[in-house]
Design a binder for these strands. Structure first.
Length: 940
RNA sequence: GCGGGUGUGGCGGAAUUGGUAGACGCGCUAGACUUAGGAUCUAGUGCCGCAAGGCGUGGGGGUUCGAGUCCCUCCACCCGCACCA
């Protein structure tokens, strides 16, 4: 009987569903294990073969863990709020909930087609009110807490208010707005209710504030920093501008240190951790205040990581936007400074980045005083100083910093060396920390490690500065002027925000007539009719960003139906943290940083069991596609001409545009000589009517040779392979094994449809082991031979070890080897094959289930079997194959008894004819014998 | 520029502790079976060479009896960050 995956797979999928084989209980005496896949956004275009790679790996691991005695949670759900559904709604008027539902169904079908062991009864969706109720609830907790540095955690704002009433904010060490003034108890008590509320906003972990944000006019919303790439929106690639707006913000900076140092505790890919470290951008240094020469009461504050270079300061640089610029500019410089500011303001981000090397700036005419040596320091403005970083002012040390050096050279400013190890000062700056200080007042003769504390102590004693830690990371903008997101559970009264009552959660997304801003420029929620809190107060009209729901969702899977909490304490206590998290590296600084932030916060409240929610994370690599291009002559107006790629050298001065072609039209696609034949060209013409009249210059064989590249699998390149098509032809088991077989899980690799034949053949051969020549199922009850047991246990050892290391590709090889070896000895013994069926079950769940039942077992192999145990006894050998090398080159391989001693081996090896041939007439200098490994004879 | 990663046959990749480099699969070559082959089976397949033999893990150097693996140095590619003080 032939292996028929379609029939088998349908049958067992149905069986698993009907018998709830993958249902997971929170009550189990087995140890728990939590395997999580990154939350997918259910896009309208469905899955391509790259998407399931991580799901297959996590499914194999989950099934393996289950068979080795764990109670495994392996859920799936949808991050179903998001921009694409709303863009679609704007175009079509269809409510995003409806299109999202449709997309989810399609996603679910595609996922089910692949035989995953998800417990679908735990499916969650962020756009479901029973889910976003708890997103809103967590938001409310953030609003009601502030970060206390002394306690090292979040504490209730109610405690803060009590403290203000008795002590004001003196002695309080809490994270707050930069501009928070000191406050006496009397002042607090004299405040109105509204004033008090506004003051508390300076401390709350989420709060509305006026700030410059990334405004994307095309999307009609603000974006967070991680949603902007190279000055355009990540979604859609639209221009983004800076705009001053009132926005809800998350005080993630309060957790900067914990987010940074927490990385050391988790087993995540190094590159991903590095990206987060980069994003957080912690720099340790000092802030120093330079008094103005003519007005010593006014100080310019700078932040530096190299306070040890302070005696090398020869000028000061302010950002053109700096507050003091206007005040300090002398009349003679006014016009030039004005022009410079105007010029910098006119330049776009892109221009500024492109002209990094060009030195520009302007002298203000004023001076400030270096607090250490009292020297006059000229003050310049320059756009290499960023207004948004630090204080917007830089103490320039041209001897130690290349940008300062360039600036000094350009304006003829002095360059003062400060370390005796600095070299070639006339060529470039030298940022060394080696050597001893010179020209440096109180630190002369010291080394770096001594200088820093000496200087900071000096500054702090005089109140002229202090040691300081600075972060690149900003607070995260949390509102979006969009419809399809969680409503913020807050309303406004006289310009002051208040939370709605907890009993009123969830605050439902109201219906609107259109998904566009109102005529007055308010977000779409402004269109909702009679949508007022208690009938009179305006609700917050912006919604939450895409990352809100995904910042805590893994808890919901633990207890999806809970109406009293986002997840019950017993459920959380049982499941604890995620043991294995699988997903793409594109979420490195978005989801994976925000979710850590929320988890730290929930931990502070005693609601999360561990600081870090994902112990181990692996990134699956991208599956790439072949992109096929044809060469179009670049010419204005003329007849459009495509030229075969092998004829290009006949057109030496021509420039070519590369036009992607649908890979289905290309013959022998993916190969060097891939081409369009007549038929392919006609298909292309049909498909791209704008090229219907074009000329196609083919080679002598009538082929239009294409250019093949390996790249992204994407709609844009018309090279998307749909897993449904692969499954229809080869079966889900084959698809799963092939994706694993392609290579290491974390590596990018190209999809090659031809290669799948190898796995398909293997599955048929494996199936064939259970059938006799007449095609009937037949296994033998005979005792297995030593050789057969060896094959089995070699496979068990390899597969078990490699799964533990997430090396799924080599597991597939191991199955192939075992199957080939058993075929050679025509083994059909039940004792061997049954073990192999269980061993392969995590990889090829359907065929394993079929064979498990055919072998006469009840229930399900995925629930009722135990994973095969490795027994080293069966791998013991009587003889070992020794490679025998002469001078490191293998010249023979010979079997020797396993218990042969070093001396015996040496003697036997030297007597071998094959060895004699090489050592004849030469001196044996040394013989290296490594028992059970190899023998090397050194001759000279 | 800084940080992280990767370089092994025609291709995807294997080699877990320094011990037979190229497992497994694709592709290719030859043969068998067949009305047919994009089916199946058998054999071969790192490169050069008729062979003996030589050469081979990005390049160069080193340690070692022995290096894909360890050390130094250079190169290429990918990813991230980037006037960040």
């Amino acid at each position: 009987m032939d292996y028929n995956p379609r029939e088998i797979e349908q049958k067992w999928k149905k069986y698993w569903e009907e018998n709830e084989v993958y249902k997971v209980s929170n009550l189990s005496d087995r140890p728990k294990y939590y395997v999580l896949d990154m939350f997918p956004y259910p896009s309208g275009s469905g899955l391509h073969v790259g998407h399931p790679l991580g799901y297959i790996a996590s499914d194999i691991f989950a099934r393996y863990k289950r068979l080795t005695g764990f109670n495994v949670l392996h859920p799936m759900g949808y991050d179903s709020f998001g921009l694409p559904a709303e863009q679609y709604a704007i175009q079509t008027g269809i409510h995003p909930a409806i299109s999202t539902e449709k997309n989810i169904q399609r996603y679910r079908e595609q996922l089910e087609n692949l035989g995953f062991s998800f417990d679908w009864s735990r499916e969650v969706r962020t756009s479901d009110p029973s889910f976003y109720k708890w997103t809103q609830w967590i938001f409310m907790q953030l609003y009601q807490h502030y970060y206390d540095n002394d306690a090292g955690k979040a504490l209730p704002v109610s405690q803060l208010a009590e403290r203000f009433a008795t002590k004001g904010n003196s002695g309080l060490n809490a994270v707050c707005d930069e501009d928070t003034p000191s406050l006496a108890a009397a002042e607090w008590n004299a405040m109105s209710e509204a004033q008090q509320q506004l003051f508390l906003l300076k401390y709350r972990l989420t709060f509305p504030e006026e700030s410059y944000v990334n405004w994307c006019p095309a999307l009609g919303t603000v974006l967070s920093n991680d949603e902007v790439k190279d000055g355009v929106s990540e979604r859609g690639g639209f221009p983004v501008e800076r705009k001053l707006m009132k926005q809800w913000s998350m005080r993630i900076t309060a957790y900067a240190d914990r987010l940074l140092f927490g990385l050391d505790e988790i087993d995540w890919p190094e590159s991903l951790k590095e990206q987060q470290r980069n994003w957080i951008g912690r720099s340790q240094g000092a802030s120093v205040r330079f008094a103005l020469e003519e007005n010593p009461a006014t100080k310019i504050e700078v932040f530096t990581t190299r306070v040890d270079t302070i005696y090398g300061v020869t000028f000061m640089c302010l950002a053109p936007e700096h507050d003091l610029v206007e005040q300090i500019t002398k009349p003679e410089q006014k016009e030039a400074v004005k022009q410079y500011i105007k010029w910098t303001a006119s330049r776009s981000e892109v221009e500024r980045m492109a002209e990094v090397k060009q030195v520009t700036g302007e002298f203000t005419g004023s001076y400030c005083i270096n607090p250490f040596n009292g020297e006059k320091v000229p003050i310049y403005i320059a756009d290499y100083v960023l207004a948004g970083y630090g204080t917007g002012a830089v103490m320039a040390v041209p001897s130690g910093d290349q940008r300062d050096w360039n600036f000094a050279k350009h304006f003829g400013l002095p360059i003062v060396p400060i370390l005796d190890a600095q070299k070639n000062m006339d060529q470039a700056a030298d940022d060394t920390k080696e050597g001893r200080y010179i020209n440096s007042g109180i630190i002369n003769g010291m080394v770096y490690e001594e200088a820093i504390p000496t200087l900071i102590k000096w500054l702090e004693e005089r109140g002229l500065g202090k040691g300081k830690v600075q972060y690149r990371m900003r607070n995260a903008v949390f509102s979006r002027q969009r419809y399809w997101g969680e409503p913020v559970p807050a309303y406004w009264k006289d310009g002051v925000p208040y939370l709605i009552d907890e009993s009123e959660l969830p605050l439902l997304l109201p219906p609107v007539d259109k998904y566009l801003p109102t005529e007055t420029g308010e977000p779409p929620l402004g269109r909702a009719e009679n949508w007022k809190y208690k009938g009179k107060y305006e609700y917050e009209l912006s919604t939450m960003p895409g990352w809100a729901g995904s910042s805590w969702y893994w808890y919901r899977y633990m207890d999806p139906g809970n109406t009293e909490a986002f997840a019950g304490p017993e459920a959380i206590q049982y499941w604890q943290a995620v043991d294995l998290y699988v997903g793409g590296s594109e979420h490195a600084v978005g989801h994976l940083l925000y979710s850590r932030f929320w988890n730290h916060f929930l931990y502070d409240l005693g609601l999360a069991p561990e600081r870090e929610y994902a112990k181990k994370l692996i990134n699956q690599g991208m599956i790439q596609g072949v992109i096929e291009f044809i060469h179009l002559e670049k010419s204005e107006g003329k007849q459009k001409r495509f030229v075969s790629a092998d004829l290009l050298d006949q057109y030496p001065d021509t420039e070519w545009a590369m036009i992607p072609v649908h890979v289905d039209f290309v013959s022998e696609y993916g190969k060097d000589h891939s081409y369009l034949n007549r038929n392919g060209i006609d298909q292309f013409r049909e498909w791209r009517p704008d090229f219907r009249e074009a000329t196609f210059i083919t080679n002598a064989e009538g082929k239009l040779v294409t250019k093949s590249e390996v790249g992204k699998m994407s709609k844009r390149y018309f090279n998307v392979v749909n897993p449904d098509d692969v499954v229809a032809r080869y079966g889900a088991d084959c698809f799963r094994m092939y994706e694993m077989f392609l290579g290491p899980i974390e590596q990018a690799k190209p999809w090659d449809t031809q290669g799948i034949d190898g796995v398909s053949k293997f599955l048929r051969r494996f199936w064939g082991l259970f059938f006799n020549k007449q095609g009937a199922f037949e296994v033998s009850e005979e005792q297995p031979s030593k050789e057969e047991l060896k094959v089995l246990h070699a496979a068990i050892k390899k597969v078990r070890e490699d799964i533990e290391r997430f090396n799924f590709n080599t597991c597939v090889s191991a199955f192939m080897i075992a199957s080939n070896d058993l075929k050679k000895v025509n083994c059909n013994k039940k004792a061997i094959l049954e073990q192999l069926v269980i061993l392969i079950a995590p990889f090829a769940p359907h065929v394993a289930e079929e064979l498990w039942h055919r072998l006469g077992n009840p229930g399900s192999v995925h629930r009722d079997a135990g994973y095969p145990e490795f027994n080293p006894e069966f791998l013991k050998q009587d003889a070992i194959k020794y490679p025998i090398a002469i001078n490191g080159k293998t010249r023979a391989t010979v079997d020797f008894p396993v218990d042969a001693t070093k001396e015996e081996l040496e003697k036997a090896a030297l007597e071998l004819e094959a060895v004699q041939k090489y050592i004849d007439g030469k001196t044996i200098r040394k013989v290296i014998v490594v028992p059970k490994r190899m023998i090397n004879i050194v001759v000279g």
